[in-house]
């Protein structure tokens, strides 16, 4: 498979996953705000999750619901709209690789957002809009699973998806915990239970968490579940071991496998004792550095070439 095409598949996987995750955090937090009308800074934490604080400030002066939602739904940086249109562009230029229905699916989602995006800005239409986005993302993922051969192309899509998912889980955990552990934000202490539930819901993890952890919802268990659980699909450890499986199906996988193994070891560190604001943040930083390293290794192994004698030797 051509490197250029592999790269497009990888980013297609990432962008579809990004669109889905962004839709979910907006949906969950819109619900949450109705329970916590006095807590204002929830909106700014959504921008923190995306890591686009600077871009947001360049564009808006006030951090309020209206602006944040506009930024996350329709702007050019980390919005659902931009993620879907990037995914579409990647699919468009590699249509001969994916099942035709997948192209049609992403195209339809793109058109839906273009035509109905405004509807998501107001609370009245938001739930319906986001549910449709989520459901179309799920359809697409399911369609690929059901109709695409488990070959090189599909493994690149999955690799992108799992890396993006692991990345989003670390971000949501990080920001969610910061809010809760920050003792200056005393007003939140009363809602501790609701907020931890919110972190779980942002990752669609609440139900699975309850089945897995018998105790009441508490910070240590939530962090442990989201980072280290091997079976929950959005837990970082699970995403990493899935990425490992994808690599096994690819040629030249050695370097990437090493970097994934390194990340798995990092995640395996005993978290519970680390759970203070400062330490946890550093810990998640470490994981994120590992994820960035995996991405770089992927790019170096498969997407870009330096022509040297070694490479030529293997080619002949």
């Amino acid at each position: 498979m051509l490197s250029r095409v592999a790269e497009k598949m990888y980013w297609f996987g990432r962008y579809v996953e990004r669109a889905e995750n962004t839709a979910r955090i907006i949906n969950v937090n819109t619900n949450l705000i109705m329970d916590l009308p006095r807590v204002k800074h929830i909106w700014s934490s959504l921008i923190e999750i995306t890591g686009c604080e600077q871009e947001f400030q360049n564009r808006f002066t006030v951090v309020d619901e209206r602006n944040v939602i506009k930024f996350l739904l329709l702007d050019d940086f980390h919005s659902i709209k931009s993620a879907v249109s990037n995914a579409r562009e990647n699919a468009r230029t590699s249509r001969e690789i994916m099942p035709t229905e997948a192209w049609e699916g992403i195209n339809e989602l793109h058109l839906y957002i273009k035509n109905n995006g405004e509807q998501g800005l107001k609370r009245t239409g938001r739930h319906e809009f986001l549910s449709e986005v989520l459901s179309q993302c799920h359809q697409l993922t399911g369609l690929l699973a059901g109709s695409m051969s488990d070959d090189v192309a599909y493994n690149f899509i999955k690799l992108g998806r799992h890396l993006e998912r692991a990345d989003m889980t670390t971000r949501i955990t990080d920001v969610g915990c910061l809010n809760l552990l920050d003792t200056t934000r005393i007003e939140l202490q009363d809602y501790d239970n609701i907020l931890w539930m919110n972190v779980l819901r942002s990752l669609n993890a609440y139900q699975m968490y309850r089945q897995n952890v018998q105790d009441r919802v508490n910070g240590e268990d939530v962090v442990d579940f989201l980072l280290k659980n091997r079976k929950f699909p959005r837990a970082v450890a699970h995403c990493l071991s899935e990425a490992q499986v994808c690599c096994d199906a690819l040629p030249n996988e050695d370097q990437t496998l090493r970097s994934i193994t390194h990340a798995i070891r990092t995640v395996d560190t005993d978290v519970i004792r680390l759970l203070t604001e400062h330490k946890l943040h550093n810990f998640i930083d470490d994981i994120q550095l590992d994820l960035a390293d995996i991405h770089n290794t992927i790019a170096a192994s498969w997407f870009s070439y330096k022509i040297n004698e070694d490479v030529l030797d293997t080619a002949n």
């Binding site: 051509l2 490197s3 690819l250 040629p251 070439y305 490479v311 030529l312 080619a315």
Partner: peptide
């Protein structure tokens, strides 16, 4: 056949044309 763009191809020292694939350069 592979559908390639110019950036997918490279002419190496041996004056042969290769395409950049995930498995390496391929003649």
């Amino acid at each position: 056949a592979e559908l390639v763009e110019g950036s997918d191809l490279v002419v190496a020292e041996d004056d042969c044309v290769y395409m950049k694939t995930v498995e390496g350069l391929s003649r």
